[in-house]
């Protein structure tokens, strides 16, 4: 460094400061949060447990459980680059009756304009076979994941839907016309099993999500339509298939729920 540089430095700094003050185009740097809001629906309506809804097949259902795991979030910047949420923060269990569990916060996302969000329905195979020490929070089969884990076919229940329907046969155990769809199976570790993990891509249409260090987190407001699990590509007839657990029919259920997540809107706070 020569002396001239230091002599000019205050002036230089002053000019730079002045320029940035006048500049209207903001600098996008630092980190911010992104919120994914899971808004559970039944067709055109908000999902309310106990309310009657009619499926594409014409069956009437009153729901009592709607839980699902979502994981492995990736945000796609408008320039095409991708930000992958770190493994330790990318597993979420959403329960209908717990609104907080349906508002997911992805923290420390690089500032930018994001046009898409990608995620997996379920818990990926690596996490599904991980040792006990790595199973904390919602992944703890004796804690957060209780009721969402099969101990005999070790793995998480990705999507759990329960309810009743007058079209369903009477369950000999409960003496009620119950529906039970517990879908899991991650593909197996050393020997293959059915794989019901589904990847979802949500693209924004008009407005990207603006992540800024100084603004409140943008929200991807998603609709999660439980009735979609009963149709497209296959209409489920609850009289014939009132239950599905680990079994070949679970593939039909999973293909149906693959498209139950859609974008309602992006909400920016700038």
């Amino acid at each position: 460094m020569n002396k001239t540089f230091f002599q000019w430095l205050p002036l230089f700094a002053f000019v730079v400061l002045g320029m940035s003050a006048c500049d209207k185009t903001e600098t996008i740097d630092g980190l911010g949060d992104v919120v994914i809001e899971m808004d559970n629906r039944a067709g055109d309506d908000e999902l309310v447990f106990g309310t009657k809804y009619v499926t594409a097949n014409g069956d009437t259902i009153q729901f009592s459980t709607f839980n699902y795991f979502v994981s492995n979030f990736v945000l796609v910047n408008e320039d095409g680059s991708e930000y992958t949420v770190p493994k330790e923060d990318c597993y979420f269990l959403c329960k209908h009756e717990d609104a907080d569990s349906r508002e997911l916060t992805l923290r420390n996302v690089p500032a930018g304009n994001y046009k898409s969000v990608k995620f997996t329905i379920g818990v990926d195979s690596l996490k599904s076979v991980s040792p006990a020490a790595e199973r904390t929070g919602v992944l703890d089969p004796t804690g957060g994941a209780a009721g969402m884990y099969w101990s005999w076919n070790a793995g998480y229940i990705f999507v759990k839907v329960e309810g009743t329907s007058p079209q369903a046969p009477i369950d000999v155990n409960t003496n009620e016309r119950t529906l039970q769809y517990h879908t899991g199976l991650f593909g197996g570790k050393d020997s293959p099993t059915l794989n019901n993990l589904k990847k979802v891509t949500i693209n924004t249409t008009s407005e990207t999500a603006h992540v800024r260090k100084s603004h409140e987190a943008p929200v991807f407001h998603l609709y999660v339509d439980v009735l979609e699990m009963f149709t497209s590509p296959t209409n489920i007839n609850v009289a014939l298939n009132p239950t599905s657990h680990a079994g070949p029919y679970s593939a039909t259920v999973a293909n149906n729920y693959a498209d139950m997540f859609t974008l309602d809107h992006v909400h920016n706070h700038d």
Partner: peptide
């Protein structure tokens, strides 16, 4: 049937099995 892929996860299988111990692992804890 190889339903459990890791030794750590063995114990909760017989605990939860309705014909064996029929208990929830969370309640055991």
């Amino acid at each position: 049937d190889g339903g459990v892929p890791d030794m750590d996860l063995i114990s909760i299988n017989p605990i939860q099995n309705p014909l064996e111990m029929d208990e929830s692992p969370a309640r055991v804890v």
